[in-house]
Design a protein around this nucleic acid. Structure first.
Length: 628
RNA sequence: GGGCUGGUAGCUCAGCUUGGAUAGAGUGCUGGACUUCUAAUCCAGUGGUCAAGGGAUCGAAGCCCUUCCGGCCCGCCA
């Protein structure tokens, strides 16, 4: 409970006071205070001003009088502020002991929001016809981070990756292989996914413009893909699985793991659509148009002045969105599961088993990858389609928030970066385009970052072995990439600039990781294990107290992040922790003080900081090295 | 035309859900701190009509309305 214990104590006491005054229904806040205003503040006086017909200042005086008679354990002082706020000061000796002891528990920062219920997080979901670019990374890191935060919040999380293996984009590279003579092996030194995206896909798309007869080939290829039994479909399956494997390598390298891979081709062949379509008709969620521009089609009525959406064409075939409806229903466990499950051919790093769906018999036991709640991470360009799905699911499930579209703005390229890729944008940022070859590959960014961090680490540690340096550089590069993708709010565009992305100073992962290395070094040098059995009253420097305070706020931020599906909250928390530690580091020494008691107390704090930062960074999928 | 979304310091962004105290970071620029537990650091200074206007409120960056400017989406494509 840590800092929350203090807040709870104050809240309870204030409620009792209101009860004695026969006042109810006041939704006052009790929050960590801004610096300079005590430790906790409440706005209660402002809210009482009207009903008591007194100024906030007078009420603050009154309330603090009453509060002083309450039973106080962690509060040492109450102070009415002339503005009307009620400011509380903690008994830091007690609170420090509470926070620092609790921070030693493995479950420190864990909260119970999910009540151990099953939840699905779907992310990544990229066409397996190209390598992952920096825009995909935002999706992947966002989804992975949300999954980690939800686990910490007592949800049973299953992470899905929907492999879009039967669309037009896949057809395009198949056309390249089958009709343009592209070799099935990538050139030496080039990953197969890069080859498919950079060469096969881009060149094939160019060909359509030069030679319109290829459009026909494209259409036929798409048709053959959806059939499933065709030679083309089998060939495509082989190719897309090779690409998928390469894409997964990129994800795994970033510390992103999954529970199950779902294949679009199998959803199509499973026949789930026709079942859902019947249900939609029964529930009157779709309508048949007899006339108008959509005559002969089944449509979903548009809301908010939006156009109706065709879901079954007049020729009887289903449109794109129709594939998403059964899949969404499947994720929510609303339809009988037609799939068997088998383990993915390659094992993920770590212990997590990776399953995949199959329509053929399997010796493996049936799995359950459904949830009462489903979070689908897709960029906000798909907001409209997702809104339709969300609407349908809320009717199926009769709850509003069972299906959540977690949208985010896309990643664009800075004009400088676009220029290095050969596009003059006249100083404006540019949307990435796989088709035009205008993108920055995720692997390439990682490599650049890694080379740079290897260089930086070598500068500082001439004595280190190559493998040790490589390990550190890996953690720092992954951390940097992940942090940049997560620190910004979801509704803000990220303009990616190749040069700026290599910055390792300021509000970046290395800044935060560096504080961890500093803390580790102190503990290592002290040559004795940190103990919790110390004199907490010795920790009274402002820099010590503010560090303890921030450590104690961990769970409050986890709750905020989980409730609002807002991973940047944790990124900011990590940054706050790091800032507080750096300030502590500059202000007070820990070692060789000639005062063993004080050293032990500070060592205890350093250790608490280190393990708390470690836990918080873990939620972001970032590892902090002991040296860097 | 309709829907969604953003506009806060030169630049990149927090704060807005739940109105209240001196609107915060990073970066940039200026100056300072390494014989010290790692300077990927710290300290100080600089920098703001919170897009504009109106409304409700004792009180608005925040809530409501209008306008302006940017981005995205709006196919019987996927």
């Amino acid at each position: 409970m840590s800092f929350k214990s203090l807040i709870d104590e104050i809240e309870n006491n204030l409620h009792k006071i209101l009860e004695d005054m026969s006042i109810s229904d006041i939704q006052f806040t009790v929050e960590p205070a801004k610096p300079g205003f005590g430790d906790v503040s409440s706005n209660i006086s402002f809210l009482l001003a009207k009903s008591l017909k007194k100024s906030p200042k007078e009420i603050a005086n009154l309330m603090s009088e009453k509060y002083r008679k309450s039973q106080n354990i962690l509060v040492s002082k109450v102070e009415p502020h002339p503005t009307g706020y009620l400011n509380f000061f903690a008994d830091w000796e007690k609170l420090s002991q509470l926070i620092l002891s609790e921070s030693n528990l493995n479950e420190f920062g864990s909260i119970d929001l999910g009540n151990n219920s099953q939840i699905i997080v779907e992310h990544t979901s990229v066409n397996p016809n190209k390598a992952l670019h920096i825009g995909h990374i935002r999706n992947i890191v966002l989804g992975d981070t949300v999954a980690r935060i939800l686990k910490k919040s007592n949800y049973k999380v299953n992470v899905l990756n929907y492999v879009d293996d039967s669309g037009l984009q896949v057809a395009d590279i198949i056309v390249g292989f089958k009709h343009l003579g592209f070799d099935q092996q990538s050139p030496t030194g080039k990953k197969f996914d890069h080859y498919c995206g950079d060469d096969v896909y881009v060149k094939t798309t160019e060909k359509y413009e030069q030679d319109p007869t290829f459009e026909e080939i494209r259409k036929n290829t798409l048709k053959e893909l959806e059939d499933g039994t065709s030679e083309t479909a089998k060939f495509a399956d082989m190719i897309t699985r090779r690409v998928l494997e390469n894409q997964l390598e990129t994800c795994w390298n970033l510390g992103v793991y999954y529970d199950c891979l779902n294949f679009e081709s199998q959803i199509i062949r499973s026949g789930l659509w026709s079942k859902i379509f019947e249900k939609l008709k029964e529930m009157n969620l779709v309508e048949f148009e007899n006339d108008g521009k959509n005559a002969g089609c089944w449509i979903i009525r548009g809301e908010d002045n939006e156009e109706d959406k065709v879901i079954v064409r007049s020729n009887g075939t289903a449109t794109y969105i129709a594939k998403d409806i059964p899949y969404a229903a499947w994720k929510l466990g609303l339809i009988d599961d037609p799939f068997s499950y088998k383990k993915y051919e390659k094992t993920q790093p770590g212990s997590q088993i990776l399953w995949q769906t199959t329509l053929t018999e399997s010796n493996e036991p049936k799995q359950n990858f459904t949830g009462n709640k489903v979070i689908t991470v897709i960029d906000s360009r798909q907001a409209r389609l997702q809104k339709i799905i969300t609407g349908l699911m809320s009717k199926f499930k009769s709850t509003d928030d069972a299906y959540v579209h977690l949208g985010y703005e896309s990643v664009t390229l800075s004009s400088d970066t676009a220029q290095t890729l050969g596009l003059d944008t006249d100083g404006k940022q540019a949307q990435m385009s796989g088709r035009k070859g205008l993108y920055v590959n995720a692997d390439a960014v990682y490599d650049l970052l890694k080379n740079k961090t290897i260089e930086e680490t070598k500068k500082r540690h001439a004595e280190m072995s190559d493998s040790e340096i490589e390990q550190i550089a890996h953690y720092v590069s992954v951390g940097t990439l992940r942090y940049e993708m997560i620190k910004q709010d979801l509704d803000k565009m990220i303009t990616f600039d190749l040069t700026k992305s290599l910055s390792l100073e300021g509000d970046t992962a290395p800044y935060i990781q560096y504080t961890h290395a500093r803390a580790s070094r102190i503990i290592e040098k002290s040559a004795r294990p940190p103990s919790i059995d110390v004199d907490f009253s010795l920790l009274n420097d402002p820099s010590e107290l503010s560090l303890i305070k921030i450590i104690g706020l961990f769970e409050i931020y986890v709750l905020d992040a989980a409730k609002n599906l807002s991973p940047k909250v944790i990124a900011r928390y990590c940054h706050d922790l790091a800032v507080a530690f750096n300030s502590f580091y500059e202000h007070v020494k820990v070692l060789e003080l000639g005062d063993e008691k004080l050293e032990n107390s500070r060592l205890c704090l350093v250790h608490s900081f280190k393990i708390t930062l470690d836990k918080a960074l873990k939620l972001l999928g970032i590892t902090a090295p002991d040296k860097m």
